[in-house]
Design a protein around this nucleic acid. Structure first.
Lengths: 356, 356
DNA sequence: TTGAAAGCGTTACCAG
DNA sequence: CTGGTAACGCTTTCAA
């Protein structure tokens, strides 16, 4: 029994050698033909080219990306780190990045952090082990554990091109949105509607991540001469259920808040559900504001008032920055501020002068 | 100026050679220590081991995954293909797969199809070029284009372990849900509520993909002695907006349907929004049923009646099948049927005897 | 115009 | 216990 034709054994994928043998040329020739080096440096006769291409087709030859990477030193692959696989918002970014990457011939390796610590570290280690040409990080690391930080530092030390989407004080290329200004707008709007007790619900592991919205929230309260009630500020988890639970508890208290700001639309949806379950009508009895403007925000009932941005643009900018750094590692760090805007839809309205 | 200490140049990542040099041992020794072969075949003195580990730590050495893969022939990486990056439902599967993969030491390479044809082909080609140890496909290829099919066939021919989540006639390991039975339940329920004009909205590129729900829909109609009105069956796109548009048009007709089945929860949300915009109350004037039970389904207002499953279980089963095939390429093809169940929530109710 | 050969970083065999 | 060495599949320089 010939071991090479045993059916059922994984067929070895054909290599350049196989193609070369079938076409009756050398491996180098195959490589030239495949990489289109045929008119630049090297000239290969059209007949030979055709023979090679035929052999490729017949064998179903596909170049081995790993070997290519090993030899050439670069993979045309970018790592993308997202904080929460379940928040559609982050996928909007990925989509934007992917489109831009597509145009530049780059592929994406998407990893999520923050599911559980062990998981997160594995993901990160994996990213470090692979040869990636650059890394795009959304937000920042959820829980800067020792290991996580260590890996991140190694990547930086190795001068791996990194772009952060979100705000960071680190000297890294950044694409960021001015949440401060946007939150000021939100607060000005709510205050003008006579809201005085305004809840703030955020679900991030690292408190610093909500700072850009929490600080202006407090600032505007103070400026309006209103007290800052820390009990109205709730730090919950990232899921819609977390938002629901937090809001349910918050809305059960008396006197009740007349408005709630949720740090993202997912949590805002949890808030809306909690309000409904408590028989609180939105927007007449409660105003709700989210952030992100996920696609669903404009379809839920009532349509969500939120702070919107164009994730595709963020992705484009991130790609632009990372390409620039790949080409020119020494270029000065660039921080790009992207426009975002407050969109009033149906979940906000004037505070009731007398309620409950 | 010493070119080797020019600041700002990408630092070459350290290799085993660097570690060996620093520790004063040979490359082989380094490899042994790192791979923990120290007590099995080869014995390395604890001091030597420590020296190596110290050197690894000092240099921040990380083994090169590509080189490892090239040498060892396998990558511990599984490809995962999902049809639509924007539908949270597919991410639930990925999550399930990822957890199971984590436990078996496998990493995931997630790609989406169906964004645009060119994009899809690039993604697929990339997957074929990389060394992956197996492939998990959700649904099936959106648009079986020539190129797509060709690549897929090559993978099969190469005996790449493949598991399909969803139904397929192909002789491949499969994890599937019995939508036929579930849809029968849905129809029985709606018919028992006196619904007679029932719309069916599905958003898939390849009509075959909706078949498992469309056929029982029609079958139950016939069995109940009701006519099949093809104009009530709408094939739209996959986005929530597509569902909205389709439903808006459908619900504007007279006489109006009293119930709508959407092929997934995302489209169902579009239907709910369209109903709201047309002033049609759910569930008193219109019943809506979805499929998938995405997380949000239980939080939107009103809560969505839908067909639910446990995506994590699907992921687990898919991993189990693919691991089994990797270990034993010749094992008989296995098709695993997963339980799903119809959950009545708040978007369904009795048909009005007289409406509009 | 084509072929031979070196080398990318790793693993694993085999002698020392 | 350790060092030399071949091989994985590919690209690219250098000769022929």
């Amino acid at each position: 029994m010939n071991p090479f034709i045993r059916i059922g054994y994984p067929m070895k994928r054909p290599t350049q050698v196989d193609v070369a043998r079938l076409a009756g040329v050398s491996r180098a020739t195959v490589s030239y033909v495949i990489n289109g080096q045929t008119n630049g440096r090297v000239n290969i006769s059209p007949e030979t080219q055709q023979r090679v291409l035929d052999a490729v087709a017949e064998l179903g030859y596909v170049p081995d990306a790993q070997a290519q990477a090993l030899r050439s030193g670069s993979t045309n692959t970018l790592g993308v780190l997202i904080p929460d696989i379940h928040n559609p918002h982050f996928w909007q970014y990925v989509d934007g990045i992917e489109h831009a990457a597509q145009d530049s011939g780059y592929r994406l390796l998407v990893s999520s952090t923050s599911l559980d610590p062990k998981h997160e570290q594995n993901n990160l280690k994996d990213l470090a082990q692979r040869r990636i040409d650059g890394l795009i990080v959304q937000g920042f690391f959820s829980e800067p554990s020792k290991t996580t930080n260590q890996i991140f530092k190694q990547l930086l030390k190795r001068q791996l091109p990194i772009v952060v989407i979100g705000q960071t004080r680190a000297q890294v290329d950044t694409v960021w949105a001015d949440y401060r200004t946007a939150t000021n707008e939100v607060m000005t709007y709510l205050l003008s509607l006579q809201h005085q007790r305004i809840g703030f619900i955020y679900g991030v592991k690292h408190p610093m991540l909500g700072e850009d919205r929490l600080t202006p929230y407090k600032g505007n309260l103070v400026k309006a001469g209103l007290p800052i009630d820390e009990s109205l500020i709730i730090n919950c988890g990232p899921t819609i259920e977390d938002g629901y639970q937090a809001a349910y508890e918050l809305l059960s208290r008396s006197p009740r808040v007349t408005a709630v700001i949720a740090i993202n639309d997912l949590l805002a949806m949890g808030v809306l559900r909690a309000a409904a379950d408590l028989g609180i009508h939105v927007p007449s009895q409660l105003s709700v504001v989210g952030f992100d403007d996920i696609t669903m925000a404009n379809y839920i009932i009532p349509r969500l008032t939120t702070v919107s941005k164009d994730p595709a643009k963020f992705g484009q900018e991130a790609m632009r920055l990372i390409l620039a750094r790949i080409q020119e590692p020494d270029r000065p760090v660039q921080k790009i501020r992207m426009p975002i805007r407050f969109i009033v839809r149906e979940t906000t309205g004037p505070a009731l002068s007398e309620h409950q």
